[in-house]
Amino acid sequence: MKIPDGDLLRSRVVGDLGVTLATALERRLTGYAVVEPQDAVLLGDETRGVITFTEGVPVLAYCTTSDRGGADALEDVRGPGPYSVDLYELDRSALAAAHEADGLRVSPGLPAERLTDDRDLVTRTRDAAPEDRLGGDDTDAVESFLDDESQIEAIREQAREEARTRAEEWGLTDALEES
């Protein structure tokens, strides 16, 4: 993967990559982060990962050491911390070529899901992501299913009735909750 040099915004050591992801999100950063697990620095190992962002939302992840992308790259970079992180700003057009590499892409919330314990950050990232980056057809069908409250209520009502009928068959009526 080749990414043109960007403008260095900040360079620091963080204990938790959630800080980096939250910073990128809050600044609506278009650019990339270069992440090096600090233990790798100490050991002279060169594990290094790159996560790119469009308007604060992660687009792709790549580990230069293992040459793996996507979820695998996140796994390669993940460690106990701390991490040395450089955050760069770069034009969206300069990132366009790299962003065509489908094999390196991550879903918007995946870096936060894999690299932090912060569910709230996952949710905020997904909320900030454009519609076309969230989910596919399957998700749409599941959402429609859950949006149909009368259908859900029908499933529940039928299950309640079935539970009561069968409780009688099985002699479990006394264990039923009064309703």
């Binding site: 979820a71 879903s107 919330g109 996952v122 949710t123 989910g135 399957d138 859950l146 409250e149």
Partner: peptide, 16 residues
């Protein structure tokens, strides 16, 4: 799986 809009599913599932 990675590519699901899991949070939108969770938001809705939590109602029930």
């Amino acid at each position: 799986r990675d590519d699901g809009g899991i949070d939108r599913v969770i938001d809705r599932a939590e109602r029930y």
